[in-house]
Every structure is written in structure tokens, then in C-alpha cells.
Computed example of a mutant assay.
Amino acid sequence: MAKVKYVYDPEKLAYRKIKPRKARKFGYFALFLVASALFGFLCFVVLLNTSYFETPKDRMMAREIDNMKINYAILNKRLEALNETLNDLEDRDNNVYRAYFNSAPIDEELRKGKVPAKNRYKELEGYNNSDLVINTAKKLDLMANQMVFQSKSLDEIVKLAKGKEKLLAAIPAIQPVKNEELKQMASGYGYRSDPFTKVRKFHKGMDFSARTGTPIYATGDGVVERADASLSGYGNHIEIRHGYGYKTLYAHLSKYKAKPGQRVKRGDIIGYVGSTGRSEAPHLHYEVYQNGKVVNPLNFYYGSISAKEYVVISQIANQENQSLD
């Protein structure tokens, strides 16, 4: 029940009841409605920014964001592990592979490539997790640069390895005749007595005493450059061009089993021992050339004899005896 108010009337010397106006009542009511609406709106805004008023869609998006954060963290750990592996490969590339093939190491800054431009990641800015996303993107770009460069480097290593393999196969590395109990060595490289003039002169190769018809073997991979008797004193002889500056000569053959232009492998039979040309007895005269200069063949037998055998052959070869040609 509404409270009744009175006012004193001096003319009538009595109290009279105050009757409220309808307009004022309506104003109070309208003001109440406006205040209520404003208060309700403020409460609604507050609730929207709290977890108490989340929609199912909001909760799903929040879970997706949390999952993305976890996935990015896992991805970064995997990137770090891959980066360690890549760094290890780069270290082996510089300090093992390139060292083995006598190739200069690659500078660290060159491996990383060009630094990405600053505006490259501009489209990733402005988000709640921009730092995480940009950091991951930078790591990926850096690793991509390193992997591309490392791939090219490994291609180069493969080429070096193939070249090294061919080089090792081409170097004269075995004796041109089989060495049975070291009895076939007749004369070595250096000054020896000429069998015909008895004058001391330089002997450019090694003589292997053997029966006529004993097989002669190519001492390294190469191409037969000559198989004739055109050189004075050498009789029937064969020259093999091995490449990489190496050439070998086999003289006084009884017959050939290789012809000019033929490609041979180390260990292939190219001819047979004889005594043609300026020769005192059946034997093979063998010479090795490196970059156009004649060298001691004794230094190239590592592929067919042991260290102990090398010492014995070296002692025999260094004796200043008489050569057979």
C-alpha cells in the first residue's frame, strides 16, 4: 500500500491529502525501466567476457587453440632434434668427408644461406600466438636453406668419391707379373751395369725374370695407347695411359693380348713375356711414368705385396747388379 502524504492548509486551518500527479508517476516508472535496461546490458557484457557465458562454439575454439599451442611446442622440439642431426652431418661433411678428399671446408655462414627479409613474416603478426608461429617459421626457413645447401654439398662429395674411386683404380698398384717366392726380380730402378756394353747407366724401370710366355698383367685401369715395336731397344712393347698423369710401359714381349685403343682393367692379361729387342734373356722390363717423368715402380706395388715382401723386394731392387736390357 502506497504511503499517504498530507500538507497543512492555513486558509482552512486543516491538513489536506496530497494527490500524486499521473505524469510524475509515469516519469518515475520510465526512469526505472531505463536504469534496469542499462544495468542488464552491463551485466550481459560482463558475462560475455567470462567463462560462465561461453557457448559450445567458444569452448571448441578454445580447445583448438590449446591443441595448436601443444602441437607447435612438439613441432619445435622435433625441429631442434632435426637441427642437431643436420649440424652433425655438416660437421662430418667439413671435418671427415672433405678432409678425406682434400677439399676445403665450407664456411658456416655460407651454409645458412641468405637471411629472410624482415617483412617475410608480416602476415603472421597481430595474433595472440604470433611470436610462437613466427619463431617456428624462421626455424623452418633456416633448416630448409641448410638442407638445400647440404644436399648440393653431398652431391659434390659423391662426385669427389667417384673421382677418387677412378683415381685409385687407375694408379699402377700391382706387379706386372706374379711374384712367386720373390725369385722373379732381376734388376731394379736406378744405375745398373749395361749387359752389352758393361757401362754403368741409368735403368729406368724394373726387370722381372720369367719364362717366355709368362702372362703380363695391366697394373691399373687404363687405355692401351701403343702395342708395337716402334721404340728402339724395347722390342715388342705396350704402353697404357691410365689418366691422372700416370702411364706404364711393358717391354720385350713375345706376343700381345691387347691392342691400341682397348680399355683394360687392373689384373687383365695384356701380353706375354719374351726377349724381343735389346734383351739378354726372357724377362719383362716395366716402367712407370707420373706427369711425364719416370718414377721408381717399387713405390706402386702396395696392391699385391705385404710389408714384409716389400722390404725383401726393395733390398733386391736396390742392388747395383746387371740389368737384362
Rank of each mutant, 00 (worst) to 15 (best):
L160I: 06
G113F: 10
G267R: 05
H283I: 01
L13Y: 07
A35F: 14
I305Y: 10
K166Y: 03
P215L: 05
V148N: 06
V311W: 03
E165A: 11
A81S: 09
M147L: 14
Y244F: 15
F29I: 04
A169P: 05
V4Q: 13
K257L: 10
F149S: 14
N67V: 09
A104G: 03
S130R: 06
E309N: 03
Y121A: 12
K122C: 05
K162M: 12
K257S: 15
V273C: 03
F149M: 11
Q319R: 01
R120F: 10
I106Q: 12
Q146N: 10
R192Y: 00
R278T: 00
G235V: 11
L33N: 10
Q262C: 13
F29V: 03
V177N: 02
G188N: 00
R21G: 15
V96Q: 07
Q175H: 04
P176L: 05
G40F: 11
G261T: 07
K139E: 14
S230C: 04
N321I: 03
E180V: 13
S279T: 01
L75S: 11
G292V: 07
T50V: 07
K259V: 12
L79E: 07
R78Y: 12
V311S: 15
K164N: 12
A229H: 07
Y246N: 09
K69D: 01
F39A: 15
R278K: 06
L79S: 04
N236Y: 02
K198H: 15
R192T: 01
G277I: 01
S323Y: 09
M206H: 02
K162H: 10
V133C: 04
V177K: 01
A99F: 12
A210C: 03
A210V: 01
L167K: 03
A169T: 04
P215S: 03
L140Q: 10
V34T: 12
K204S: 02
I157P: 05
R266H: 09
D9L: 11
F149A: 09
F29E: 05
I171F: 11
G40E: 11
T50K: 07
K5P: 00
I65F: 08
A173R: 08
S153L: 12
